[in-house]
Design a protein around this nucleic acid. Structure first.
Ligand SMILES: [Mg+2]
Length: 229
DNA sequence: GCGACAG
DNA sequence: ATCTTGTCGC
């Protein structure tokens, strides 16, 4: 994963994309869900990053467990190749969670990707877990703006195939770009993301994971450290 | 060749 | 993603 050329990375995606499954393969009644996210150092310019994971009880959003790990940033950000940058540390942080979740929410695209293998799908295939990709903006595909009410949605398409759902999770607020990662159907993906959204735009798992990896910045600042994550 | 482009 | 304060709108 470290010394990969862009061409090699794309070839790997084409191979792994064949292993993506879009049929629901997770408990019908969700008990726990997991949110994952990463943050990067800037001020320290040390090229380091942090991956975080939170395990929540579905519905109450009570935090049952959380974990984070720091490491070297292995790959630059290249649109379409985000997984080669964040996957290594995300896999590591998953190992640090004592329990497994029924479903995983990833900050990024699932199959709504040029080669149908965004970060959520890549993680799902490699770790063999059900995942949903929740992106805050569009990577690829075309769509009609969904109505302004909460729950409004419209298909995200690439030519003749539907690769995701543009979902409005809050009234009059920019919609989310939801797509199946692995072992989750197109319909279940948007339905479950909405089910995890309360007063905020982001689903609870993603929101809490983001808070976890971002609150560290405050911790370091308070300790007088020059590194910002 | 030009513009788009998850985080 | 990160750098940053105030400001506009529901
Ligand atoms: Mg992120």
């Amino acid at each position: 994963m470290e010394g990969l050329t862009i061409a090699e990375a794309k070839a790997i995606q084409q191979l792994l994309a064949k292993r993506v499954r879009l049929d629901d393969d997770f408990p019908e009644t969700l008990s726990t869900v997991c949110g994952l996210d990463c943050s990067y150092s800037r001020r320290g310019k040390d090229g380091r990053m942090i991956a975080g994971a939170v395990l929540l009880r579905f519905g109450s959003w009570e935090r049952l467990e959380s974990a984070f790990v720091e490491g070297e940033t292995p790959f630059p950000y290249v649109p379409g190749l985000l997984s080669f940058r964040e996957l290594p540390l995300l896999l590591e942080v998953l190992r640090r969670l004592e329990r497994k979740a029924d479903l995983y929410f990833v900050d990024g695209a699932g199959i709504a990707h040029p080669r149908r293998l965004g970060l959520a799908s890549h993680l799902g295939v490699v770790a063999d877990i059900p995942t949903i990709g929740v992106a805050k903006s569009r990577l690829c595909g075309s769509f009609d703006e969904p109505a302004s009410s909460r729950g409004a949605e419209s298909p995200l398409r690439d030519h003749d195939e539907t690769i995701g759902t543009v979902l409005r999770t809050r009234e009059a607020v920019k919609p989310l770009f939801v797509s199946p990662g692995q072992k989750v159907s197109l319909e279940s993906a948007s339905r479950l993301v909405l089910a995890c959204c309360g007063r905020y735009r982001l689903p609870e798992p993603t929101r809490q994971a983001h808070r976890l990896v971002t609150e560290r910045r405050v911790m370091w600042k308070e300790k007088g450290h020059d590194a910002t994550y």
